[in-house]
């Protein structure tokens, strides 16, 4: 069996992108790591008493405070003189990050704690039943932004979390996708080699909430990147470095495999709106590979 610090036996759904992402992160970080975890699917499916999947010290406190708890862990280790040998990771879903946890994250960034913050972005409150979050994409059908005769789904764009993180002047910000596992590993390694606060946002498909086949997790994740809907990039010391797309695909290919966008398929105007978002990303982040 493969050695892992995120042990099997947890109760994540088949094809869960977050479980794949969390395992990539901790196995890259290694055993000298302490994790503070917000409330959410990951916490629920990995630590049902009296069992735990975690092979590293791990603490869950509340929905919105993992950045502050991690700050306290860092202060404690600093007092003990142990900080330099131990990684601290604060991790949460998109709601715990961009909505309810934003204030605590901002405080952690501003104070300069040596913590890697990882946001597993599955683009809605999946743990409570697929409600809209600040990172739910435009025109997504969720249980609290349903499509209907008077609505095309979530009317608002994703909150620009990576830019918000970067605006704090922290040394490293990156986005990644479980569709590209080696890229996730590379970024975790790089982030942990840098002192200070780091922000990594990983796109993690949720078969249940996105309504796609569990076997398609990697394909869906890749399509999000290849269409330009989920730009992958790094901000290092203010410099933005994009992951280029060799062959840009039309957004329809991404939308049609997911139930959360089914209401858009026979609506060319709506598809145009989503395509415009992808096009804007491609331009803004300079995603197109040179011919």
């Amino acid at each position: 069996m493969v050695e892992t610090l995120f042990k099997p036996g947890h109760t994540a759904c088949a094809g869960c992108g977050q479980a794949i992402g969390a395992r990539l992160v901790i196995d890259t970080a290694g055993k000298n790591t302490i994790i503070a975890n917000n409330t959410g699917c990951l916490e629920v499916f990995s630590t049902k008493y009296p069992e735990s999947s975690w092979g590293v010290p791990w603490i869950h406190s509340l929905f919105e405070n993992c950045a502050a708890v991690a700050s306290g862990i860092e202060a404690g280790l600093r007092f003990l003189g142990k900080k330099d040998s131990i990684n601290i990771i604060a991790q949460a879903g998109d709601g715990g990050t961009a909505d309810i946890g934003l204030q605590a994250i901002s405080g952690m960034f501003e104070r300069g704690h040596d913590v890697l913050y990882v946001c597993y972005d599955n683009e809605a409150y999946m743990n409570t039943g697929i409600q809209r979050s600040g990172l739910t994409p435009t025109l997504t059908d969720t249980t609290t932004s349903p499509s209907g005769t008077g609505s095309e789904g979530n009317p608002r764009p994703k909150k620009p979390m990576p830019e918000i993180a970067a605006a704090h002047g922290i040394p490293y910000v990156a986005t990644a996708s479980v569709g590209y596992p080696q890229d996730v590993q590379k970024k975790v390694k790089k982030a942990l080699s840098i002192k200070g606060p780091k922000y990594l946002q990983i796109h993690v498909p949720c078969p249940l909430g996105w309504r796609h086949e569990p076997g398609l997790t990697f394909d869906v994740a890749k399509l999000a990147v290849e269409t330009g809907l989920y730009p992958i990039f790094e901000y290092e010391n203010g410099q933005m470095i994009p992951r280029k797309i060799a062959k840009i695909k039309p957004v329809e290919e991404y939308l049609k495999v997911q139930g959360r966008f089914r209401h858009l398929i026979k609506n060319p105007e709506a598809i145009k709106k989503v395509q415009a978002i992808a096009d804007a990303n491609i331009q803004k982040y300079n995603l197109k590979a040179e011919a």
């Binding site: 302490i34 503070a36 603490i59 406190s61 509340l62 919105e64 405070n65 950045a67 502050a68 708890v69 991690a70 700050s71 306290g72 862990i73 860092e74 202060a75 404690g76 280790l77 600093r78 007092f79 003990l80 204030q103 605590a104 901002s106 405080g107 501003e110 104070r111």
Partner: peptide, 28 residues
């Protein structure tokens, strides 16, 4: 005396910071 003084952005975080620190076995 030697201690880490963490200036936080809210009481919610003040309590969360001492929670995290105490969880490392440090008197907070």
């Amino acid at each position: 005396f030697e201690a880490q003084f963490v200036n936080v952005e809210s009481e919610h975080s003040a309590a969360s910071v001492v929670l995290g620190a105490e969880a490392t076995g440090v008197r907070s």
